[in-house]
Write a protein that binds this DNA or RNA. Sequence first.
DNA 1: TTTCTTATGCTCAAGATTAGCATAATAGGC
DNA 2: GCCTATTATGCTAATCTTGAGCATAAGAAA
Lengths: 330, 330
Amino acid sequence: MSQPATQESPAPRAEFAVSVDLTAVVVAVTDDQPRVLIVRPAEVSTGERLDALPSGPLELGHRTLESGLRAWVEAQARAKLGYIEQLYTFGDRDRTALKVPTGRILSIGYLALARETGAAAANTSWQDWYRYFPWEDWRRGRPSILDRLEPTLRAWVAAGPSRVEQTTRKTRISVAFGLDGARWSEERVLERYELLYEIGLAFEAHRDGSPTGCAQSDVPTEAQPMTADHRRILATGIARLRGKIKYRPVVFELMPPAFTLLQLQRTVEALAGLRLHKQNFRRLVAQQGLVEETGGIVTGTGGRPAREVRFRHEVLIERPAPGLRLPIAR
Amino acid sequence: MSQPATQESPAPRAEFAVSVDLTAVVVAVTDDQPRVLIVRPAEVSTGERLDALPSGPLELGHRTLESGLRAWVEAQARAKLGYIEQLYTFGDRDRTALKVPTGRILSIGYLALARETGAAAANTSWQDWYRYFPWEDWRRGRPSILDRLEPTLRAWVAAGPSRVEQTTRKTRISVAFGLDGARWSEERVLERYELLYEIGLAFEAHRDGSPTGCAQSDVPTEAQPMTADHRRILATGIARLRGKIKYRPVVFELMPPAFTLLQLQRTVEALAGLRLHKQNFRRLVAQQGLVEETGGIVTGTGGRPAREVRFRHEVLIERPAPGLRLPIAR
DNA sequence: TTTCTTATGCTCAAGATTAGCATAATAGGC
DNA sequence: GCCTATTATGCTAATCTTGAGCATAAGAAA
């Protein structure tokens, strides 16, 4: 056993070649659709042109990981990023089509929020994120693709090698996909994707040569795969964002400076993939003091004109961490 | 601008040497104190013997990052880890005493929960985490060290180069440290440490040669520093755990199989660094169905004997994701 | 036996949530 | 100009949740 790396250790030992990719999930909401910035690789070797997230290798010149990411994305998309947060670092040896016997590729995933600007740069485009996860959009009711996935999920449960394993599998699909009486939980995006990968219902599992529980022909064609582990990173980003909008005022990073309450609601609905109760949504926003009136009135909404509001930046100081509470003694 | 890394790209390019350290915050609670597994480096070169978290380099043999971490920690501490989750990946070029002009050290931090077993392995020990963050323990009221820190914080505010910057700084210290009427928020552990580092009230800032706003003599001596960026990783772990206990039943990973409600409360209090309201805490635990009676009675508590309870594992299936809710339309 | 300490049951008021109904104000078709 | 569809917004009743506390039970220590 070698010594742990400490302050006193010598220069980093290159046990093997590690290459670090900084990968971004850049989100915007336009026309009530959640969009993600996509890069189409210019080089085609296999004939497959898989969508990719903007990314690039960590370089010596990057002072911090975040500044490196910013540099790559801003160069590729010619857009300025606002809010950024790190998501997760992926480094499974076998979760890629590209097997490197002497090295390893790490992907450090980031979530960034932006406002879609008119023209995307060459080779980039904004894509509806439900293109990659059609089962995640419940705004018009339960997505029909779930009916097509369910038989394969059930078959995988039945194929469990033991009773105990079958029970475990049943619980997993019930909780993840809201089956057998369980409630759909919009935040379990990554859990669902990982389960589909494991079962073999994600194209990437077959591409990577991972062991799967079903045939490649069972993979639904309407769900677009992505290059490398990018769909996994995107799932992580969506899950994080869906969780975060509930306790931090991050939605406003996606809104124009002034907007109506319905626009705000539609944006949250687009992200959560759910319809929300209008009156209660408004009360929630009002009582938290998240917005203030600009004084403007927006007509042409097809009904009574709406008041125009803007984000109250003061809330960041006033109520910096809403969220849950412990029963604190005072 | 080079091409983004994609599935089709060749073997990873070693732009420069990247070495990846897997670092663990291993937490246990014993005698109502939150403890963290610490490694004392055997090699001493500078005369300083700084505490370190268990860690080791990512190696080719590690199938996943998590299994690599598990291997390192279990070898160093001779203990099995239970719950594990990834925290964050740190890679700031200049946040270490060790400047590597041709490479970079990444630290991937993990949080692991354990039960303290009798004897720690040689070179390892369990340390109270408030040894590194004495301002975080409010169980016996406001920690006095805050009185000693406050003048330097105020001086840093006053030293802001502009009125705007001074206001920003004032808000930052108020929110982070619960000054000027703001409420103490137990989750802002990392924010507080980062602010102290920036101001120069953390030893590590002086060690790293980072620009600081105060003299090294202002650094409080009762707060133990750590090697490399380990105190930053520990702060991240504490913050994550303090947040997580509110919406996931992770505390039970730290409890013995059977325990009393007061023991459970003291454990949560140890982690949160706060005193909790007893009756309300019990009601919370009861109404969520988190525990069930074992039938046992524990005497010798210094008062009326307590019922013995155990964690109800079924809750993981029944209520898989409590947390906040959006006003969903049904 | 008294006193202290902890365990546990119960209550009350305030606040937040869920699920509605009702009314106001515009656009568009006739 | 009038009716209707559509959206905006105000208001309410029932239900849950939370904060704070009182009262009693049952051991341990003096």
